[in-house]
Write a protein that binds this DNA or RNA. Structure first.
Lengths: 231, 231
DNA sequence: ATTTAAGCTTGACATTTATCAAGTGAAGCC
DNA sequence: GGCTTCACTTGATAAATGTCAAGCTTAAAT
């Protein structure tokens, strides 16, 4: 692992307040692995052996059931996944696969649990991280139950615009089929949702999305901090 | 508070491993309040001042957005709510209202955070509780995104049957309108979902629900431990 | 006992979403 | 260059869900 990668991981809220020794133990126990795109890193229902840290690339968390498949979230660098399963030493509820060539640090669950017991500051960070994750999921439930597909798309676009660089411009980092699963709809329905929001101040050209009339889009999306504000 | 109520709270996973002193501090800092049915205890977007423990009665967690309202979960005695908001000292994402005459212990957020810092065993229990809550919400997202309304109803019924006493018999503890919101549909749609599952081994009479042909219901519901197994 | 109100159900209809099939366009391959 | 493949789009149709209105049942209120 390059020193700057270690620094980036160290800067994560989850690790930032941990003692130097704790962090060193975790990194030492971990394996840094490279994966090509499309590799399944984790399978739902498997025992949760590792905490994963995405150092580079893009990872999709997804799940299946009742003959369908859906996407739960996208993990960008530097981000972690399946902390909760590791802590409760339970099975995974979600699967994970790379969307791009990726680099992932895999830290054995036991190392994480031991570090937590040994370092109260690290445990406190875990509490904060889990609370954030819980609240993210509550927001996602609200998003799904209270909004139509086009509304979810409109609010997703506004959120992406907030968090990414250029004002009023968003470039899709992954395929639209992944976005459709993330938003809880079929690819066909996503296409139609795009034609809907084009009437409300959005223009698209392939993966390039532009907000041309923000007030109109806001009127349509009606964003709420209690759903859309990132945790 | 009656001694047996204190004992019941002490037996919660969240408090069970806490030191005697920690628990005493928390109870001492808390207020035990009685409420009639239909009282809103907590309003989404308010600052999270208290951890709530439902000692008696029934509390509905719900949320609004985009002009609609939905129910997130039902808290039965003895259960807690909005731990995550209290820990992150953030605003509530959900509202809470009593469905019955209820008794609620309200513990100031600061007392919870102080107790957590002072008692590692309590903090460890908080970690486990948050991880459980997170996983519950992941399951709820999967439930919503992967299943139709009738499937959600069928699986809800199977789950209730598991956790409640009499095999093959479930008595609805609250109004069907609440159940419909919990399952993410309108009351009208719930009525129709009931007529659907009546063709798959269920008979109903008011709030009395009976599973008359479990294999048929299982075939229809296709339950999955990764969605339906309680955390 | 009658009235009232509330919860639930049902029917008709509209909207949203999914499914199936066909077509378009662009990237990669031989 | 021509070909294939794959993602995406579009159209037609079906299924799921929501909305509106009416009627039913039940239990509380007078």
């Amino acid at each position: 692992m390059r020193p700057e990668d270690a620094d980036a991981i160290r800067d994560l809220p989850l690790f930032h307040d941990a003692r130097e020794e704790t962090f060193a133990d975790l990194v030492r126990a971990g394996f840094l692995q490279r994966f090509p795109p499309g590799v399944v890193l984790v399978n739902e229902s498997d025992p949760a052996d590792f905490l994963h840290v995405v150092v580079e690339g893009l990872v999709e968390m997804f799940a299946t059931g009742s003959g369908r498949e859906t996407s739960i979230s996208i993990i960008r660098p530097v981000g972690t996944f399946i902390l909760a399963a590791v802590l409760n030493d339970d099975m995974y509820l979600q699967s994970a696969r790379t969307l791009e060539k990726s680099q992932v640090l895999m830290i054995p669950g036991k190392a994480v649990r031991d570090a937590m017991t040994a370092d109260p500051a690290f445990m406190k960070a875990i509490v904060a991280e889990l609370a954030r994750g819980y609240r993210r999921m509550v927001k996602e439930v609200k998003n799904q139950k209270l909004r139509t597909g086009a509304e979810r798309l409109a609010n997703w676009l506004l959120q992406e615009d907030e968090s990414s660089g250029e004002e009023g411009y968003v470039e899709l980092e992954f395929e639209k089929r992944v976005l459709s699963a993330l938003l809880g709809m079929t690819p066909e329905n996503l296409s139609r949702a795009f034609t809907v929001i084009r009437k409300h101040g959005v223009s698209t050209e392939g993966p390039c999305l532009r907000i041309t009339d923000r007030p109109a889009l806001l009127r349509f999306a009606r964003p709420s901090p209690l759903i859309d504000q990132p945790e």
